[in-house]
Design a protein around this nucleic acid. Structure first.
Lengths: 121, 121
DNA sequence: GAATCGGGTTACCATTTCGTAACCTGGTGA
DNA sequence: TCACCAGGTTACGAAATGGTAACCCGATTC
């Protein structure tokens, strides 16, 4: 009979911060969007070009969700044809460190030749 | 006519580190598993208890995938009934900073009363 | 001999996420 | 007049992810 040992890792405290943060950056594409809005506002077609492989449908859906969640701000510019600029809100900027950490780990894995061919083909 | 401006944000360099890292921590549950293996090896039923709300099916599936991806190590102990211990491999430990950053952001959001009620109900 | 336990597996189904491709709208420039 | 542009939307279908619940195995304990 083996006793169930108590975890030495505190649960990511009350109401799970992990889940709180993950719900903003879930899915394949959301982290990319937040990453590319890091420095300056970007237009729809600029983001579509920045993020290799994303479809207009997914980009449009995610941007709408992120706007509703208060992560990105959408501004229609008075140009012709009208252009739209997306930028990070304060909340969006709070998320940057998490994305940056993920990117850092990804770069480290690459250097070590983990990732992409050694792992998870 | 608006010119398409060049991005000032470098693309997360060659072959996307963001994607490289994200493929290890995708889904709702994977980050939780890695988090709870942080300190010591854990058994199946212990992890199931640690991670509130995860089903045996998903836990079993994710653990199998993580083992195959080289993130966790699975050891069958010679006890009766036999117990199984899961622990992080070196690769698994490389992922910790990313998870930790996500948890940190989650905690900060909670303190600021973002998240969970203000945002994304 | 029956119930219990750890560590799962299986079937079935719902939801989320993604991809492709076609289409729309209002203004502009040729 | 007509094609083009930005910034989308829509329809359709596939794959990934998740949930519930029932079941399985071998060893042990009652």
């Amino acid at each position: 009979m083996v006793k169930v040992r108590k975890s030495k890792v505190e649960p990511p405290p009350n109401e799970c911060p992990l889940a709180s943060c993950m719900k903003f950056i879930r899915g394949t594409w959301t982290p990319h969007i937040i990453w590319y809005l890091k420095a300056t506002p970007r237009r729809f077609s600029e983001l579509k070009g920045d993020i290799k492989g994303i479809s207009a449908k997914v980009l449009s859906t995610r941007l709408k969700e992120l706007e509703e969640a208060g992560v990105v701000y959408r501004e229609v510019m008075d140009t012709s044809p009208p252009t739209v600029e997306y930028s990070l809100t304060e909340l969006g900027r709070e998320l940057q460190p998490a994305i940056a950490a993920i990117v850092n780990v990804g770069m480290k894995l690459k250097k070590q030749k983990y990732a992409c061919h050694t792992q998870a083909a």
